[in-house]
Amino acid sequence: MLHIQNIDKSFDSLQVIQGLSFEVQDGEFVAIIGPSGSGKSTLFQLIGGVTSLDEGAILLDGEAIQQQRGVIGYMPQQPCLLPWRTILDNVILVEELRHKPNMELAKEWLDKVGLSAFQQAYPHELSGGMQQRVSFIRAIVSNKPILCLDEPFSALDEFTRLEMQAWLVSTWETYRKSVLFVTHSIEEALFLADRVIVLTKRPATVKAEIEVPFARPRTEDIRHSATFTALKQQLFTYLKEEAYAD
């Protein structure tokens, strides 16, 4: 599916990413965590084709996609809904850039997540959590082979955040598309992902990779299991090592 192969990226003299390689399998949910300033956003800009690579390759289904925009589904940190468009018109935005949008699919998804009553509403009438759901639906409806989620819940309050994580898990489990999820929250990564990749601090490369053993469908209960705590501890140690390393 998505292969990141030995990529390098510097801005002027600052090396941000060095020899980074990993992959996301078909139907797999991969989370990436790293200390702040570890080049997570840069990584997404590279995958999204907004910034150019220095070295290495990014392959999607065997095809090089560096410098190509619009091949991945993307959900940003802020909902980024257009305030003058109705919810339905926001959902079809990405499709609209390429071809005639599939209104039925958009309506179907809004219905699935219980937002069908808001089709004709405007974004400011929705809560932050609801706006992020719309943003996620928009990424799904864009119908790309992989979804890249860039800290999508980091701007939400703690309670909404937990609620959104549970919502994302259950939505994703019925849908099972490949997801690359960037976060700075250890718990979020463990709760959502099949595999967690830990990045080093700048220049970023893979420090560790752990498989998350919980079966799906997942429930809130796994947060209290001994395995969860142990993995959390392990990831925390990795991140602490990075934060204090020099």
Binding site: G49, Q78, C80, R98
Partner: peptide, 27 residues
């Protein structure tokens, strides 16, 4: 800036960025 960045990430062309984002934003 975050909306412009979003438009770039979803592969909007320069004229799409203008007509679908900047133009209505300026209303």
């Amino acid at each position: 800036a975050e909306l412009k960045h979003y438009f770039q990430m979803i592969g909007a062309s320069k004229s799409q960025l203008f007509w679908k984002l900047e133009w209505p934003y300026a209303y």
